[in-house]
Computed example of a mutant assay.
Amino acid sequence: MALPDIFTKAVTDKLIERIDMLTGESQPLWGKMSGAQMLAHCCVSYEYVYDNTHKPPGKLMKFILKMFVKDKVTTEIPYKRNSATAPDFIIKGDRNFEKEKVRLTDYVRKTQDLGANFFDGKESHSFGKLTIQEWNNMFYKHLDHHLTQFGV
């Protein structure tokens, strides 16, 4: 079953509605992250695309990621609860909830504004060139997983 199209305004608006339902007191249904940490964690996918704040993997690691991780991230198969997390995505310490909420919302809107064609064949930080569908699945599935984790 195809995942909702994150490049459409209707899907983006629904995701932002879910993000807006979170509060600083929201608790996860599973896992250990606080709401602010989860929002910061979700921003990492977008930081890879827009901010150049993370060191890209070397050639060998990129090969390994493409061979063993890419399909878990870019297909429609949902993430399992408490799955392993890449080091860049591990958020330690306190974060400002409102700041992270605004950052994530801005990234989601920017992605929708740029549109699917911007991502067609675009090189990802870890997996090489991805199709529009792979970008969509990666973005949508990750957000949906963590918003569900927090009951929204």
Rank of each mutant, 00 (worst) to 15 (best):
D113A: 15
K32L: 13
A10F: 05
D94A: 15
I77W: 03
L15W: 01
N117L: 14
I90W: 02
V11D: 03
T111A: 12
D88G: 03
K66T: 14
R18E: 14
K80E: 12
T105N: 06
P57S: 08
Y79Q: 07
D71C: 04
D94V: 08
D120N: 15
E98R: 09
G58M: 08
L104C: 04
S83Y: 10
S34N: 05
F63M: 13
F7Q: 02
E76D: 14
K110G: 05
T8Y: 06
A84S: 10
C43Y: 00
H54R: 11
C42M: 10
V73K: 00
G93M: 02
E47W: 03
C42K: 01
K32S: 14
P87M: 08
K70F: 07
K70T: 07
W30I: 07
Y46K: 03
V102T: 14
K99C: 04
I16F: 10
L15A: 04
T12M: 14
G24R: 11
V108A: 02
K92H: 11
G31P: 05
S83G: 07
V69K: 11
T75S: 15
T8C: 06
K101H: 02
K70L: 09
K72H: 11
D13Y: 08
T75Y: 03
F118S: 09
N82E: 15
D71E: 12
C42D: 12
V69M: 13
H54T: 04
M21C: 08
D94F: 06
M38F: 02
K80H: 08
F63K: 13
L39V: 04
P57N: 05
D5F: 06
D5Q: 07
L29D: 12
L114S: 03
T105I: 08
N52F: 12
V73L: 11
Q37K: 06
S45M: 12
I6W: 05
P87A: 15
C42I: 00
M21N: 13
T75L: 09
D94C: 01
K59G: 09
T75P: 01
M33D: 04
A84H: 11
M33E: 08
S83I: 10
T85P: 00
R103Y: 06
D106V: 03
K72E: 10
T12I: 01
I77R: 10
P87V: 10
L65D: 04
A116T: 07
R18N: 14
F119V: 02
T12H: 06
A10T: 13
M38S: 07
M61A: 15
F89R: 01
K59I: 06
C43F: 01
F89T: 02
C43L: 04
K59A: 06
S45V: 08
I16N: 09
K14N: 14
F119R: 04
W30H: 11
P56G: 11
L65F: 13
L15S: 05
T111F: 07
H54V: 12
A86L: 14
M33L: 13
H41N: 00
G58N: 13
G93F: 00
G115M: 11
P28G: 09
K92D: 13
K92P: 04
Y48H: 11
A10G: 07
